[in-house]
Structure formats: structure tokens, C-alpha cells
């Protein structure tokens, strides 16, 4: 359904926007498969910022205990995680 896919797109875009801002790195906009932790785009401190920013943006609770780094490995992973969380 077009409406649904539009909504999905917008969540993905919002996540990437938040991520780029927190990571202070535009590479996340161009490379959805970049390994964020291996490439030092994210570390524990910036992950905390990201949790706070995503919580604010989407109004959902995110626990640091659910962030297995394999679940948040790339921008694409984080988008999928947030889509599941927001319930698309």
C-alpha cells in the first residue's frame, strides 16, 4: 500500500537524520551498511546520545539492555530496529 510505504520511508529517513546528527558524520546518509562501531562512527557515549535522541523523536522507550551491538551494527540495522519498535 502506498501510504504504508511512505510511512516506512519517513521513519527510515528520520532515523538516519537523527543518527547523522548524533554521530556528527554524514557518511551514515550515504552508506547504509557502514559498520558503525567498528568504524568508530558510534561508541558507547554516542549510543547513549542516540538513545536519547531516538526516544525524543519517536516517543518510545529504548533500554540499553536491548542494544546488542549486532542489532545496531549498521544504519540499516538501526532503521529496522526502530521500525519494529515503532510498529510499522
Amino acid at each position: 500500500m502506498p501510504v504504508n510505504s511512505e510511512r516506512r520511508l519517513s521513519i527510515a529517513e528520520r532515523v538516519i537524520e537523527v543518527l547523522a546528527e548524533v554521530a556528527e558524520d554524514n557518511v551514515v546518509r550515504t552508506d547504509p551498511d557502514i559498520p558503525l562501531f567498528e568504524q568508530d562512527v558510534l561508541d558507547s557515549l554516542r549510543t547513549v546520545d542516540l538513545i536519547l535522541a531516538l526516544t525524543k523523536e519517536f516517543g518510545v522507550d529504548i533500554s540499553p539492555a536491548e542494544l546488542d551491538r549486532s542489532l545496531w551494527a549498521t544504519p540499516k540495522h538501526i532503521v529496522a530496529f526502530m521500525e519494529a519498535k515503532v510498529g510499522v
Binding site: 547513549v48 536519547l52 540499553p64 539492555a65 542494544l67
Partner: peptide, 12 residues
């Protein structure tokens, strides 16, 4: 996960 990040979240 259970100490450092929780502490940072609560502190912020």
C-alpha cells in the same frame, strides 16, 4: 550496558 549506559542515560 547495565552500568555505564544506564548511568549516562539517567545522568543526562
Amino acid at each position: 550496558d547495565h552500568v555505564f549506559m544506564r548511568f549516562m542515560l539517567a545522568a543526562t
